[in-house]
Design a protein around this nucleic acid. Sequence first.
DNA 1: ATCGATGCAAAGTTTTTGCAATGCT
DNA 2: AGCATTGCAAAAACTTTGCATCGAT
Lengths: 150, 150
Amino acid sequence: MNGVDTELRQTLHRRGLRMTPQRQLVLDAVAELGHATPEAVCTRVQETAPAVNITTVYRTLDLLEQLGVVKHTHLGHGAPTYATSEHEHVHLVCHHCGRVDEIDVAALDDLTAALRESHGFRLDATHVALSGSCRDCADRADAELAEDAP
Amino acid sequence: MNGVDTELRQTLHRRGLRMTPQRQLVLDAVAELGHATPEAVCTRVQETAPAVNITTVYRTLDLLEQLGVVKHTHLGHGAPTYATSEHEHVHLVCHHCGRVDEIDVAALDDLTAALRESHGFRLDATHVALSGSCRDCADRADAELAEDAP
DNA sequence: ATCGATGCAAAGTTTTTGCAATGCT
DNA sequence: AGCATTGCAAAAACTTTGCATCGAT
């Protein structure tokens, strides 16, 4: 029924690990939520299975990441967020309003190539968010500046 | 004697705030350490003044940041790191070995311009680290792959 | 003398760990 | 049945808050 779950079951079996309801639910939650904190994943999972402990969510997220099924991203402030590996993108986080936009990884291709050439550094563009001001907050800041010194 | 401290004293006075030994020490520690966690700053400060509490370090770092004297950066994993505003650079963090390199902000100028044009997003390149593999870890990973499939 | 700054202790958040009980295969 | 997985509780890591005391101006 769910291709992602079937794939996960097989991946687990290959390593002698087991498929459990909790793991299904966590993976489903991550896939649905797009990019979610462990806390958010837990809340979502508990809507279906209230008994699932947040400890299990943390452990499952770690496991799924080791298996390459999900990846976490640091948005800058508090908790990391998890998303399925297919859903990879670069995050633009506004540190004024907290808004998160997503852009294509290709936007960093030039930078990736340059860093590799100049420093031997292999950039993982999806692992960190880029921080700054979104259009709205930047415009608002500009407007306020204009008031002070017209 | 120390220009940074004198400047700080004046900045504080403008807002009716006070210059204290603790604030001097915290600022000095941040300047010396380059990019340091609150914990590391505290340790450094306590080498000179053992009585200084980590609470004060947190409070002082927040204050110094509000004043624009220091800025914090999220390196990806645990605690944020603080550096003086003059010392701004982009961090390259290896998530295999934890190594942190610094590169010039200019390396992201093209990206900054592109994001601003395409999304109205004003990138603050110094606020987040770029994550990936450093040259050594990448080479090591390549070598191991070559062993498995020669 | 005033009022901001500090230290201490305690609590809040987020994440990890140990261990007995559970349940997948 | 065997052993991975889970839940619970406790600890660890990181940060914030309340309050009485201290000290810069």
